[in-house]
Design a protein around this nucleic acid. Structure first.
Length: 225
DNA sequence: TAAACGATTAGCT
DNA sequence: GCTAATCGTTTAT
């Protein structure tokens, strides 16, 4: 592995606010394959996200209206909405659609790109002992790997003149996207609002046995090299 | 002011 | 496969 500092400027075109000014179920699949990066830290290619809709979706925080926690969801699109899950996990969401609606996309997993040293360190794996697949496979891991906290709630994404520490979203290559039901919900989990890069090794849940790409349990997978 | 719950994960067996 | 850990937010009293 080549050790070099994490980029402080994004490598390509940065997504603008207009990208997010659409319903979350439109934005979410368009995010798959895009590059999420925290300048000076690291990031990777998005492989798993979930959309949360303001109406007809009981799992959406905005479903019951504005509260102190969720008010950022009702603000301008393109902002960061973070909250704490189970008292310890930082969930990273991106606000979508028109202001006042309460729509967002939850970032659930990304495929880490080099350099991964800071991401690993944030995840408590400074020695690089764990497989690359679990650095950012799951929403709590995403927040931890990027070293996010509640102070991120309401912040804007970087505009490309990036300061160290900012979050930017960079245009990636176009990829195929698969739609599935969401994960970890007591209500609304049946809605087909989870979007993944099919067959990715970096999903929060390994592909099912029996699928064309599935070859068994995740534990058997290991990073090459 | 108190209690219940949760868009989860890690560490067991 | 199962369960403990852990605490901010919401809801009820």
């Amino acid at each position: 592995m080549t050790l070099r500092p994490a980029p402080t400027s994004p490598p390509g075109r940065v997504l603008d606010e207009g990208f997010f000014a659409r319903p979350s179920h439109v934005v979410a699949p368009a995010l798959i394959g895009k590059i999420l990066w925290r300048l000076g830290v690291g990031g990777g290619r998005l492989v798993e996200v979930e959309a949360y809709l303001p109406v007809g979706d009981p799992a959406c925080h905005a479903y019951r209206g504005v509260t102190p926690r969720n008010r950022v969801m009702f603000g301008p699109p393109g902002r960061v909405y973070v909250y704490v899950s189970y008292g310890l996990h930082i969930m990273l969401n991106l606000v979508c659609d028109r202001e006042g609606l309460g729509s967002a996309v939850l970032i659930r997993a990304f495929e880490p790109l080099e350099p991964t040293a800071a991401l690993r360190c944030n995840r408590g794996d400074a020695l690089g002992a764990r497989p690359l697949e679990i650095i950012a496979a799951g929403p709590g891991r995403v927040g931890q790997a990027l070293s996010l906290d509640l102070s991120w709630n309401g912040r804007e994404l970087g505009d490309g003149n990036g300061k160290e520490g900012m979050l930017v979203l960079d245009d990636g290559c176009s990829v195929t996207v698969e739609t599935t039901s969401r994960i970890g919900l007591s209500e609304g989990g049946e809605l087909q609002l989870r979007y993944i890069l099919p067959g990715s090794r970096f999903l929060s849940r390994a592909p099912r046995r029996g699928t064309p790409w599935g070859s068994g349990a995740r534990g058997k997978e290991r990073e090459q090299g």
